[in-house]
Design a binder for these strands. Structure first.
Length: 258
DNA sequence: GAGTATGTTATATG
DNA sequence: GCATATAACATACT
């Protein structure tokens, strides 16, 4: 479930529950997912540390410690769970036992990653991530997105351009802006790019406010229909599916205005 | 068995 | 350097 809104929702929950607590035990159960791969070193870097805050950049979640920072990426289907009584989950890959709660990073497909990093800024710049989708300003968005000779959807998905948009929300943003996912970014008029920037903020904000529960999204949102192959929520025509930038893309050809 | 999947990265090709 | 396409990663589900 993890694109920017899901990660932000998880971050808010963790922030409420975890800040101030001490990490008593840290268990990396999957070597492939632990960047660096040294379980003992990982544990010793975490155990005895206190969680002093949380942060997020794009789809990356950070637990800020009194020394160091734990980075978590949920991959394709990762999720975080809080328990009080030492429960376990089917695909647990990382277990943190704190003073009063157990945090489990569950990830069936094991595309997720976690590691201890120095701090958020250093990680983001080393990784070459673009600005966070909710922080990027209009000017910088125009500058980074416009001019790319690539499908607008592929540009939005590129974490080095803007961080946080995934396949589902890319479709939603473009649907709301009535822009063809295959439109070359470099050929999109400036006002439509500004519209895209604005829709991006709107869609992500709406998703976060709805707790990322698609059922609670506005009626004209594509995400409510996406899985069911139903009609366009705006015009009723059949939605169409295509591959753009290698990803399944759902759009309504009748609603486009370009 | 085939096809698909909310992500990222490496590799090959033009 | 830029852009595109593809496979790979690992697992679950239809």
């Amino acid at each position: 479930m993890p694109e920017l809104p899901e990660v932000e929702t998880a971050r808010r929950q963790l922030h409420e529950e975890l800040v101030g607590q001490l990490i008593v035990k840290a268990d990396a159960l999957d070597l492939k997912m632990l960047v660096g791969g040294n379980t003992d070193e990982f544990s010793s870097r975490l155990e005895g540390r206190r969680i002093v805050g949380t942060d997020r950049h794009g789809k990356h979640l950070f637990l800020l410690l009194d020394h160091g920072t734990l980075r978590i990426h949920l991959g394709m289907n990762g999720s975080l769970h809080l328990f009080r009584c030492g429960e376990e989950t089917r695909h647990q890959r990382l277990v943190l036992d704190l003073d009063h709660v157990r945090v489990i990073f569950d990830n069936p497909r094991r595309f997720g990653r976690f590691q201890v990093v120095e701090n958020v800024m250093t990680f983001v710049s080393q990784k070459g991530l673009g600005p966070d989708a909710l922080s990027i300003g209009e000017e910088e968005f125009l500058h980074r997105v416009g001019g790319r000779r690539k499908a607008i959807k592929a540009v939005l998905l590129d974490q080095k351009v803007v961080a946080g948009i995934g396949n589902l929300y890319a479709d939603e943003v473009l649907f709301q802006e009535r822009l063809a996912p295959v439109a070359l970014a470099s050929r999109i008029p400036k006002d439509r790019l500004i519209g895209t920037w604005s829709r991006m903020r709107e869609v992500l904000g709406t998703a976060i406010n709805a707790g990322t529960d698609f059922e609670r999204f506005p009626d004209d949102y594509l995400l409510r229909q996406r899985d069911r192959g139903g009609p366009c929520p705006r015009c009723g025509h059949e939605l169409r599916s295509a591959k753009v930038g290698g990803r399944t893309t759902i759009y309504c050809p009748f609603c486009l205005s370009i």
